[in-house]
Design a protein around this nucleic acid. Structure first.
Lengths: 204, 204
DNA sequence: GTTATAGTTGATTGATCATTCAACCAAGCA
DNA sequence: TGCTTGGTTGAATGATCAATCAACTATAAC
């Protein structure tokens, strides 16, 4: 890996573990085994470095997380449910630490750094668009009148909110309970969709 | 207001606006119009000061936000829906900035400061317990088998996740869409509860 | 009036902060 | 061989960081 990529990788890891403000440039330099001059040769500032970290997150979401999901699970609704479990598992594997690198930055820098805010937003939009695609792919498995864009947003909302509480609790319980509720909502939606398709059938 | 309270108030405001790491003690001193010796007379460290800020959040949630809600809206289900709108309104009034002071800190310091993490958790638990109480109060308006504790957690999850995305987007749309979905879930639950109460009646 | 207690003052500490820069080096090309 | 380009070195900068502390003041107790 070349110097530039090594800097981005180290910065990404440290920003994720410690946050943006709490991470010193000196620590990034040590971690990447690079001198300060090299870092400032590639990036004009610490903020610009974070911009590149966010760019790399944006570029990697689909090929590294979403595309493998598509290949391992053909049914779009099951795939969405699987994704929820994947996030819960990720949280568990890390002992309820770290969480979402983009979400962390969203709350830390959105108000004070407009440029970064917009890049974070693009990351969220990208995530939402992919899931939106899956939900459209689900076709009649979801109710016809269901706002699938809003539903995709809602899934991200629940993932981020659940992760936040689980990190604070030091336990996966809040995340699991949130996912349980979201799945119960999904159940209601798919049941409604099934009824729309077969309006004659009735439950006892 | 005495010196100690002035320090806590200024610290709370600045931590909320800029984050914990990004806020310097010198800025707090200037804001509170206090000398450093005074601050360190009351609080042994910046971290201890944040602990007191979190204590004050914990003490103020019920009397300042939840109790007024209870007094203005007697029906517990309507009250929960009203609370969602209240958070959306708060976000809007602040131009999609600030967000939840506890949520911000949860993502910034949970991993690195165990003491603070536990205090943040207590704030979330407090919030959840109050809403859990409301949902129990709702009685048969919700399905008998519904996990009301998990549902209370879920509402907090959606609030925090929605606020995060709205701050990143600089727009209330993500928050509104998330609340819309949550209300639709609530609708499904109350409809189910109504059916449990009147099992004979059927829809066309 | 004396003495203790609680709180205030603000200069000072050494560490760490992000950033700069002149010197240096290796590879490619003339 | 000399020149250019892209990258590296690491000491140095001034600002800001959290925290300290000895001196000082106001209040209350006796």
């Amino acid at each position: 890996m070349d110097t530039r990529d090594r800097i981005i990788q180290s910065a990404a890891r440290l920003f994720h573990e410690q946050g943006y403000a709490a991470t010193g440039v000196a620590t990034i330099l040590r971690e990447a085994d690079v001198n300060s001059g090299s870092l400032y040769h590639f990036f004009p500032s610490k903020e610009a470095l974070l911009e590149n970290v966010l760019d790399s997150y944006l570029a990697r979401l689909y090929p590294e997380i979403m595309e493998p999901m598509e290949k391992s699970e053909p049914d779009p609704v099951s795939r969405v449910l699987k994704l929820m479990d994947w996030y819960t598992g990720f949280l568990d594997e890390n002992g309820c630490r770290l969480g979402c690198p983009v979400g962390n930055l969203a709350l830390e820098v959105s108000d004070t750094h407009p440029q970064l805010r917009s890049l974070i937003d693009r990351n969220f939009e990208n995530w939402t668009s992919i899931i939106h695609g899956w939900l459209e792919e689900a076709g009649a498995a979801l109710p016809a009148g269901c706002n699938r864009r809003a539903l995709a947003r809602f899934i991200l909302t629940v993932m981020e909110g659940g992760v936040m509480q689980s990190r604070a609790a030091g336990s996966t319980v809040p995340m699991e309970q949130s996912v349980e509720q979201l799945k119960s909502y999904f159940d209601a939606l798919t049941r409604q969709a099934a009824q729309e398709l077969a309006p004659i059938a009735r439950s006892a």
